[in-house]
Write a protein that binds this DNA or RNA. Structure first.
Length: 571
RNA sequence: CGGGGCGUAGCGCAGUCUGGUUAGCGCGCCUGCUUUGGGAGCAGGGGGCCGCAGGUUCGAAUCCUGCCGCCCCGACCA
């Protein structure tokens, strides 16, 4: 490709709105342009990167036996009602009406559509296992799109769905995808880690995220050097502290705390530390009222509580529910003397002595409270893993922490959707059985962004060969005809050798071209100017290492082919 | 959705507090000459409903009200 005939609008400065490296560099290198919040036009150079990633996806998924399909982006509400997600998914689901007033949504994910297809097309266990995928634009009306392609509202996702007869074979399918994902991200040249993850609103029980390791990542990851356990901190198991030795004597003391409602107010009013206070949070789950207890200095990990309660969302108790179940005591609730409320305490709460908690009476708290003596509760792990926590898997080493970008997520779904939507097959005995499903996503644009986060320097991007928009940046160093005449055959030769070459034939000064080349970040730069013509050699620079080579023109193609072709396979 | 910030040329910004000629600077863009291995120099030029709508005023980029858009921090996700 000739740069003079291509569109790569590079810029010295990025728009002020871009704050992270990948966003800044994608803007500066002329890969993307913003159209609206979280919605982007992808320019030719950016699109080439997307296509490279998509090609790797297709190759690896087809290797894993998946079949490509294409589902609609506009989905009838009826399908989403069947799965109940029309009501559960919330405002992130962009809803629209057609001219007849019929309701639709833009697909944020495609369990409903694929399950409907499975229900009608998969009739016999003999057709299983089956894994269908698509690479398609999704829309999620996120409250806060961020960081360019990292978190858009409209984004390209590879989503795959597996169908099996029973849980056992479904898990085989799951682990096969785990392996395919490992291959995919390795091939993209990324440093990443599969970590155990919360299953969120998609439901199900077994799940991994594929996290690209980067300080700018939005997720915190906990790993154990001793046993290799790795999990999102939402999910990470931590060693439970033992309950405190129970003081059998004594009793709680009533404390007057007028208008002291929050933990912050309470700790400053009583001049105690947060870890001496029990925080009580009230939720409603159907007809049931749930009280979660945390140490005052800890944050409730909602994902862990949701998983424990096996529900899609936690609904804070309404004032009416609070009034009905305990009384007019907002800001003063505690676990003592309650009836018909399910109390779930974090392990740390049960290890407290002389704790302070709400008295279930206006303007009052209780002191000297002793868990187990003064109240009973289920215990569970309800907090986030933190620095210093011991691995809950091997119970040996402290967990260590890193940050990551969630580029892929796989779920074992079970039969949640197949049951809801009547997707059954006949088993060997001719008996209808709900399909066992898994779903598997990869954000294509996010993978590209993550790749830049992990591969850039002060000057610009340093593309790994497998996802680079081109492999070689040939620069004509000078605008004299003599130089162009020398570069032209090189361009043809390298292209003919099967290399992807971007030829900068623009009438620009050498310094200008060097800067652009470093910004765009193709793996190999080949510079030819007067000097090179005189010596019969070109200057090669490997972008990532900065290493320079003077290579005779006759050997160029061979030199580059030897280095680039093997690198196409990735890590 | 809570908190904070921003909206002036394609991009980066000044001017707004304290209203007053023709709204300014750098980069980029166009023309010419010079230059030609690390984002060149000189000269000339084009480009603005100062986010939108109302209001106050003799006069508004500047003051007031409402709206819209965008970004950042938090709660949610590929």
């Amino acid at each position: 490709m000739r740069a003079s005939q291509y569109l790569i609008p590079t810029a010295k400065e990025a728009p002020a709105e871009a704050t992270v490296a990948s966003h800044v560099l994608m803007m500066r290198a002329g890969m993307i342009r913003r159209v609206a919040a979280g919605i982007y036009t992808i320019l030719p150079l950016g699109l080439r990167v997307m296509r490279k990633i998509e090609r790797i996806l297709r190759e690896e998924l087809e290797k894993a036996g998946c079949l490509e399909v294409n589902m609609p982006m506009v989905i009838p509400a009826e399908l989403w009602r069947q799965s109940k997600r029309w009501d559960l998914y919330g405002p992130e689901l962009l809803r629209l009406k057609d001219r007849k007033g019929a309701e639709f949504c833009l697909g944020p994910t495609h369990e409903e559509v694929i399950t409907q297809l499975a229900a009608s097309e998969i009739k016999s266990y003999r057709q299983l296992p089956l894994n269908l995928f698509q690479i398609q634009t999704k829309f999620r009306d996120e409250t806060r799109p961020r960081f360019g392609m990292m978190r858009g509202r409209e984004f390209v996702m590879k989503d795959a769905y597996s169908f099996d007869l029973d849980a056992e074979t479904a898990q085989v399918s799951y682990w096969k995808m785990h392996e395919a994902y490992t291959q995919i991200f390795s091939r993209c040249g990324l440093e990443f880690a599969p970590v155990e993850a919360d299953t969120g609103t998609i439901g199900g029980s077994l799940s991994h995220e594929f996290q690209v390791i980067a300080d700018t990542g939005e997720d915190a990851l906990a790993t154990c050097v001793s046993c290799g356990y790795a999990a999102n901190i939402e999910k990470a198991q931590i060693l439970a502290v033992a309950p405190a030795a129970v003081k059998q004597t004594g009793e709680p003391k009533r404390l007057d705390t007028p208008d002291v409602c929050s933990i912050a107010e309470l700790t400053s009013f009583l001049e105690v530390e947060g870890k001496c206070v029990i925080k009580a949070l009230l939720f409603e789950l159907g007809d049931q009222v749930i009280m979660a207890l945390m140490r005052g200095d800890r944050e409730l990990n909602e994902a862990k509580l949701r998983a424990l309660l096996d529900c899609d969302q936690l609904i804070p108790a309404s004032p009416e529910t609070l009034m009905r179940s305990i009384g007019d005591v907002a800001g003063f609730i505690g676990p003592l003397g309650l009836q018909d409320i399910r109390i779930i305490a974090d392990h740390e709460v049960m290890a407290m002595n002389d704790a302070i908690c709400g008295a279930n009476a206006r303007d009052q708290h209780l002191g000297a409270v002793q868990p187990l003596r003064d109240f009973q509760a289920e215990t569970a792990d309800l907090r986030f893993a933190e620095e210093g926590d011991i691995c809950g898997r091997c119970e040996g080493q402290p967990l260590s922490f890193r940050r990551g970008i969630d580029v892929g997520h796989i779920f074992y779904l079970g039969n949640k959707y197949s049951k809801a939507m009547g997707a059954t097959v006949l088993d060997k005995n001719g008996k209808p059985t709900p399909l066992e499903m898994g779903c598997y996503g990869i954000g294509v644009g996010r993978t590209a962004a993550a790749c830049i986060e992990q591969n850039h320097d002060e000057q610009g991007i340093c593309w790994p060969v497998p996802v680079a928009p081109f492999e070689v940046h040939l620069l004509a160093l000078g605008k004299q005809q003599e130089i162009l005449d020398a570069c032209e055959p090189l361009y043809h030769e390298l292209t003919a050798a099967g290399l992807e070459v971007l030829y900068d034939d623009r009438p620009e000064r050498p310094g200008f071209k060097f800067k652009d080349a470093e910004l765009i970040g193709l793996p190999w730069r080949v510079g030819l100017g007067k000097r090179g013509i005189d010596s019969g050699s070109a200057e090669l620079v490997e972008r990532r290492s900065g290493e320079r080579f003077d290579v005779p023109l006759a050997e160029l193609a061979e030199f580059l082919t030897k280095r680039i072709v093997p690198a196409r396979l990735g890590n």
